[in-house]
Amino acid sequence: MSESNSTKQSTREQFIKYAKKGEILLNQCTKCKNIMLETVYYCDKCFSNSFRQVSYSGRGRVVTYTIQSVAPEGFEDVSSYAWVIFKLDDCDVNVSGFLPGVSTPADLPLGSKIQVIDFHEKHGLILQKY
């Protein structure tokens, strides 16, 4: 875990910058230290709205996923993919992302190791198995 100090970039720009380094930018409540996604506006433990940004490794394990074997309009650039929910290794937070090349459940058993490798404007967090 490391703390983010950049205030000149928007939160979205910072999130993308960290994702491109294989990390996830999260919020930590300054009152109770609870860790949550940076899109949350109030702490789900103490209801504070005071946060500091922290980054964690973008590595985790698959919790669940949906396979899209027929790409919807706008996603013709990939033949099949999974939209993956994964739990980060370093904290108790679930994150979602895009994993190309998955066409059957055998390609992605639950518990598979996943890591963030990039961010794409259309697909969001880009993942790979490791």
Results as ranks from 00 to 15, higher is better:
Lys8Phe: 07
Ile24Ala: 08
Val40Trp: 13
Glu73Ile: 03
Glu38Lys: 10
Val78Ser: 09
Met36Pro: 06
Asn34Asp: 06
Glu38Gly: 09
Glu76Gly: 09
Arg52Glu: 15
Lys8Arg: 10
Leu125His: 01
Tyr81Ile: 01
Thr66Trp: 04
Leu26Val: 01
Gly74Tyr: 11
Ala106Lys: 13
Ser79Thr: 14
Ile117Asn: 12
Thr7Arg: 02
Tyr130Gln: 15
Ile35Pro: 11
Gly97Asp: 07
Thr66Phe: 02
Phe98Glu: 00
Gln9Pro: 15
Lys113Trp: 07
Arg59Thr: 15
Ile114Gly: 12
Ala82Trp: 10
Ala82Lys: 13
Gln14Phe: 08
Ser96Arg: 03
Glu3Arg: 12
Ser4Phe: 09
Ser96Asp: 08
Gly111Cys: 05
Ser6Met: 01
Lys8Ile: 13
Val93Asp: 05
Phe119Ser: 02
Thr104Ala: 11
Ser50His: 07
Ala19Asp: 08
Phe86Ile: 11
Thr66Lys: 04
Gly60Ser: 02
Phe51Ser: 10
Val40Leu: 09
Phe86Thr: 12
Asn34Tyr: 12
Thr66Ile: 06
Asn94Phe: 09
Leu25Ala: 09
Ser6Trp: 00
Asn49Arg: 04
Lys113Gln: 07
Val54Tyr: 03
Thr39Pro: 04
Val54Met: 03
Glu3Asn: 07
Thr39Gln: 03
Lys31Asp: 00
Leu88Phe: 12
Leu125Asn: 00
Tyr130Lys: 13
Trp83His: 13
Glu38Met: 13
Asp92Cys: 11
Tyr42Lys: 14
Phe75Ile: 04
Ser112Ala: 08
Leu110Glu: 02
His120Lys: 02
Val93Trp: 05
Glu76Tyr: 14
Asn94Ser: 10
Tyr130Trp: 06
Gln128Val: 03
Gly74Met: 13
Ile126Ala: 01
Val93Leu: 02
Val54Leu: 02
Ser6Phe: 00
Cys43Lys: 06
Ser2Lys: 12
Ala19Tyr: 08
Gln53Val: 00
Phe75Leu: 10
Gln68Cys: 14
Gln68Thr: 10
Cys32Gly: 00
Val93Ala: 03
Glu76Phe: 13
Lys45Leu: 04
Lys8Leu: 09
Phe47Lys: 13
Gly58Ser: 05
Cys46Val: 14
Phe98Arg: 02
Thr64Gln: 13
Val54Ser: 05
Ile85Tyr: 04
Leu37Val: 08
Asp92Glu: 15
Val70Gln: 11
Leu37Asn: 09
Leu99Glu: 01
Arg52Asp: 14
Thr66Val: 10
Asn49Leu: 05
Asp90Trp: 07
Tyr130Ser: 14
